[in-house]
Design a protein around this nucleic acid. Structure first.
Lengths: 223, 223
DNA sequence: TATAAAAGTGAACCATGATTCACTTTTATG
DNA sequence: CATAAAAGTGAATCATGGTTCACTTTTATA
């Protein structure tokens, strides 16, 4: 004798959820997480503030979800490049990941920055750490694999992985990197090649074009 | 016939200013910038909230100043190690900087984190970028100098410098690094040595203990 | 169409923390 | 001491933005 949820209403609910998340992503992509307020979101989605709370218990939950969604694709992409279907050298795979990450970061500058570096509530901060860690984990697996196969020298792979994440974050998202991002295509490409070189050097791979002088213990002594 | 500021009152004013900055540093050092509220500061310094405003126009000004003070010493230290009075190899100087930075970061974990990574007002964020850039500038000068003297291979020194900053930030201040920081002294020392190695590899210096297999173009091809 | 469940609403409420200001206290001189 | 300038005060105010809730609208059934 009364109302019952049905396929159609369920679909609508999903659609609304998607609308909210998409709206939230848009807000973040052009104003960072700072621009993601409950009221702004409601307005952008053409809903009332209260309605947002039908879909997300709290702002923290919302941020977390938005973060998760934005992140998922990136991680997937990197994972796939790091462990592709066809056989590829470890160095090449690492290089593919770096280059792809760089291009994507350039394409979605503001969002990339928000995901990897922008200030947020501590509760959401946890998500960012997970995000960075997800990258680091993939890098570490790749490096460990490379070491086993004699492609990379033995090393602290966890640190090397973190280092690469740090380089990507600092190199691409700091003011210099951000300037490069909006510069000419050729300059950007050159820059990305340099980022690639640096990351490869981190794991102990030196490209032929970049001679690597052997350093003796003497050079490190205090003399 | 009236009041005139004198040496004694001036001294008192300076003392109050110092008291405020010291109190602010204490707050930041153990609760991060989040703990630095005007009221908390006033209370810690044993003054009224209004009084704080006699010394700092606004919270932003306060934060900026606190940041500047906290930063100054660190930068000085790094600068001096990068360009010391006695002659030292470039690799050794770089290594000294890394190690010293690491030790200091470990000693003042929370403060280091706050300075290099913690969320703040956009206005103050500018200061943090300057801080990171000040490090990067020193590294870059050192690298350029090293390249000129044939100690480091030619490379994008600006990027390499940013990379080192990124590594220090990510390597020492991310969860893994922070865990290491509170671990046993021996583990910490080992970790710092690894950080040192990674940073040296970034600029193209490979330590004898870490063989660097030559990579051929073939290894990077898609085959 | 009558009904009940769910979705939608936005003004009101609340929490936090910066900022102000009318007032008190301290200080240096005549 | 009388006075004026400066320093100190903290309750009151403001701004921002998350959260709630009494109410309206929509929807699916009998």
């Amino acid at each position: 004798m009364a109302y019952r949820p049905t396929a159609k209403t369920e679909a609508r609910k999903q659609a609304q959820l998607k609308l909210l998340i998409d709206s939230a992503l848009t807000l973040v992509a052009d104003g960072g997480f700072a621009a993601l307020t409950m009221t702004a979101l409601a307005e952008r989605a053409g809903l009332g503030t209260g309605t947002v709370y039908r879909y997300f218990d709290s702002k923290a939950k919302l941020c977390t979800e938005v973060f998760r969604v934005a992140t998922h694709k990136e991680i997937q992409n990197v994972e796939h490049l790091a462990f592709p279907d066809e056989p590829l050298s470890h160095a090449k795979r690492l290089s593919n990941v770096i280059v792809s990450f760089s291009h994507r970061a350039i394409a979605g500058r503001k969002l990339s920055y928000a995901l990897i570096a922008e200030p947020m509530d501590p509760q959401v901060e946890v998500e960012r750490l997970k995000y960075r860690q997800a990258y680091a984990d993939i890098f570490q697996k790749l490096i460990d694999d490379g070491i086993e196969h004699g492609q990379f020298p033995p090393q602290n792979s966890a640190l090397a992985a973190a280092a690469i994440v740090g380089i990507l974050a600092e190199g691409l998202l700091n003011p210099i990197g951000r300037e490069i991002m909006v510069s000419e295509k050729a300059a950007r490409e050159r820059f990305i090649v340099d980022v690639e070189k640096v990351c490869l050097r981190v794991v102990g791979v030196t490209l032929p074009s970049l001679p690597c002088p052997q350093t003796t213990q003497a050079m490190l002594s205090n003399a």
